[in-house]
Design a protein around this nucleic acid. Structure first.
Lengths: 250, 250
DNA sequence: TCGCTTCTCAAATTATCGCTTGAGTAGTGG
DNA sequence: CCACTACTCAAGCGATAATTTGAGAAGCGA
């Protein structure tokens, strides 16, 4: 008879994934990393954690095989370990949406009511862009994420800078804003602000990761800041060994 | 600017699902429940937990919206709250399989090497059953799970009873055994034993939940024991209110 | 009603987790 | 070599979690 202890160990392995996802902060990290590689400090800043704490969370995610990292100079850049990880995160949030009534209430509290702000579907936007429609597409995520990948014709105006850079948004064209996904407040806020200023603005359904996962075209590169300064990214950085090492138990 | 605290709360909700799956014991419980309703004691017995402990784990799963329960006399029967929960569990194990090298090693240690025991695919089995092939299909799960649902032509011979009931297995027909899924050792053990006794035996790929999820036909009913005794199940039990109540925070 | 079964709850123990603080390490540039 | 940046590690604290034990509660059946 097969050992009861071995069975327990096997299911404990499955639980490692669950354990990695048992902290809201770690899920936030995954959501950020779905938008592109980030340094530890970048993650810490986006999620609102101390550096040491973010470092620890990232290590836990790496031990669960969900993210991997590589060194680039003094930076260590983390990213999702595989596309399946992103798919799993979408499966998790979809399940939570269906099974936890609380999610709906909080989404409304965080994102705001989406009534009247009907989103542009990916298909519609892709079709209109392909047919040469005169749309102005804004990527309102932090510049680093824009650089890691963005819609083909998009312009990067991080939400933080939107108010200062309103003059760069044409008033006579229809504006479409997008951000990190369905649980990101950047695009809804941008749209609300633009509308209040008299622009014709809507948001794209979901965000860039979903666009990319749907197989639609994504461009990379474009003005970026690497640290907290503003210096442009070196065009080609050396790419040292991957530190993702297949995680095994001690 | 949308509140940072609200965002944290939202992601903490997603983490509730992860938290529910952060214990190997709870995942084992889900795997058992995927094979049909179970009383608390039934779950405790299958997973190897004390009654009070199993009760607690089931409550946690219910608070995460993954299982629901109903009272039936003095029993309280738990089940998966929705088909999506089962699908999520398959997604979890698939991800763990891809990302955690440890899983492969443990599966081999627990299930045994499957080399040379090529499984019958669902399609092949369904086709052969439909065309009237003379197969003998054995359900080697506990009788309670057989009663909750089984392959149309299957015979229930729980693994525990297989040795005593070998005379009920025809030696001149091809035998196909199945159990709970890819991480259940019942069918592989049954096949190994049958082969050692000279039977032509193979196992079905995966188990009953996967068969059902593939949309293939499932029959319910058939000799069952409800408690630990052996008395037959009453043909129709009253079905009181569902205790699954959409879970919200306190 | 009483006794029985099945399950839940409360309390207590032990283990684990999340986070902070402060020291330590790895790579970069002068 | 030194100073600096980016990150990791170790210690420690308070908060949660897992499990056991023993005491209830809820629904039979007689």
């Amino acid at each position: 008879m097969a050992d009861h202890k071995v069975k327990a160990e096997l299911f404990d392995q499955f639980a490692r994934i669950g354990q990695a996802l048992s902290s809201g902060r770690r899920i936030e990290i995954l959501d950020v990393l779905a938008n592109g590689e980030r340094s530890v400090e970048g993650v810490a800043e986006q999620v609102g954690l101390s550096l040491a704490n973010a470092s620890r969370h990232l290590q836990l995610l790496r031990e669960a095989g969900l993210v991997s990292s590589r060194r680039e100079g003094t930076f260590i850049r983390y990213r999702l370990a595989a596309p399946e990880v992103y798919e799993f995160w979408t499966a998790l949030r979809s399940l939570a949406n269906k099974r936890l009534a609380e999610v709906e209430r909080l989404v409304e509290a965080y994102i705001g009511s989406l009534d009247g702000l009907e989103a542009v579907t990916r298909e519609e936007l892709y079709g209109r862009l392909s047919s040469g429609d005169d749309l102005f597409v804004i990527d309102v995520r932090p510049g680093e994420e824009f650089a890691a990948g963005h819609l083909p014709s998009a312009v990067s105006i991080p939400l933080e800078e939107l108010k200062k850079r309103l003059d760069q948004v044409p008033k006579d064209r229809e504006v479409v804003a997008y951000c990190r996904g369905p649980y990101c407040a950047f695009a809804p806020e941008a749209v609300a602000h633009l509308r209040a200023q008299g622009y014709r603005a809507r948001q794209l359904e979901d965000g860039l990761p979903e666009w990319a996962a749907a197989g639609l075209p994504v461009e990379a590169g474009g003005g970026v800041r690497t640290g907290r300064g503003g210096r442009p990214k070196r065009p080609a950085a050396k790419v040292p060994a991957d530190q993702s090492r297949p995680p095994n138990n001690p």
